[in-house]
Computed example of a mutant assay.
Amino acid sequence: MSGDALVFYSPVDDANDWREALSAELPDLDIRVDPDVGDPADIRYALVWLPPKGFFHRFPNLKLVTNLGAGVDALVRRDDLVPVQFSRLSDTGMISMMTSYIVYTVTRYARDMHIFERAKRRGEWEYVHPRPLSSISVGVLGLGELGSPAAAMLAKMGYDVSGWSRSEKSIEGVRSLTGRAGLETILAESEILVSLLPHTLDLDGVLGADELALMPHGAKFINASRAAIVDEAALIAALNSGAIAEATLDVFSVEPLPSDHPYWQLENVFITPHMASVTVPALAARDVAESIRRVRAGKPPLHEIDPARGY
């Protein structure tokens, strides 16, 4: 209806899929796909992923911004937003995808699949005797909406799992650590380290050269959160020296990853194109619609975030 419209923007998501899913939940919602926004004054809601600089300046009556994903760093510390409410997606499909990615990448190292992959390319039969999962220590940095289920699943599989977060968490089978001392402990003890941290100001570059040097020699590192969490130059140096034996990286400071980037030349780096977890419109539209209903009724949206904290 006029005066109560939603604008959709994403460089990677299918607008038609979202239009269909949202229309099934809210038939009265006027859905407009950028740049065809009509009268900008009609826009009350925005469903976006990585909106460009200045994107929101056009919409003076905006009430709710929903992020097409769990990471909201592209929506905080902006100068083009009037005071609005923020929410992020948290659908079961996205959580399942991230959990499956973490289980796969951790298990790929735990079961030495990276060694067998290289042996296959050489045409050699190389046997490595399997180790019990309980003997493999896995550290999960970030125990939020995505990190907690992943850590819990790894623990259920039998891994020795520890997690680090801002506040202490209670997750069956997972030791919870906090603070600087907790970070140093989990770095020093983790044979496989997984980052699912949000990108906030206090976590920018939290894994620098000093922190990476705390990890056991030959440790493995998996980053499915944000590239800015880790000092890229320090990570490349550690990978070249063997201090960190292997890395699986799904996020990068520039995407797509440039063809001349050093990561491409490192045999011990497994690269995935920022696809560890994606949103499934048919599952997530229900939450988006409910947030809009709540805002219409003067209530907070689902999965509301605090821009000051960044999550």
Rank of each mutant, 00 (worst) to 15 (best):
E184P: 10
V288I: 14
Q265F: 05
T178P: 11
T272M: 10
G54L: 05
A155K: 09
H261W: 03
S96L: 10
L141H: 04
N268V: 03
L214N: 00
T200K: 13
L283Y: 05
M157I: 14
S176T: 08
V103P: 04
L89V: 15
L207Q: 06
A233F: 04
I222T: 03
M113K: 04
D28A: 14
V269N: 01
D160W: 04
P52L: 07
P258L: 05
R44H: 05
H199F: 12
V288G: 02
D28H: 12
R286N: 12
R108K: 13
P198C: 11
A284M: 06
G205H: 04
H217L: 09
W18I: 05
H303T: 10
G142T: 11
I171R: 02
P281H: 03
S90P: 01
F59S: 00
V161W: 00
I305M: 15
D204Q: 12
F59G: 00
S167A: 13
M157H: 03
V140R: 06
P307K: 01
A227Q: 01
H114Q: 12
N16R: 15
A119L: 01
G298E: 10
G310L: 03
S170A: 13
A70L: 11
T99F: 03
S170G: 04
A5F: 10
D287Q: 15
E191N: 09
N268L: 01
Y127C: 06
D260K: 06
F86E: 07
G71D: 09
R118I: 05
H114N: 12
E126S: 07
D39L: 04
E267N: 11
V72H: 09
I171Q: 04
S10L: 01
E232F: 07
D112K: 06
L133E: 05
E232K: 06
P149C: 12
D28S: 14
D39R: 03
E290W: 02
A276L: 02
M153E: 13
V288A: 08
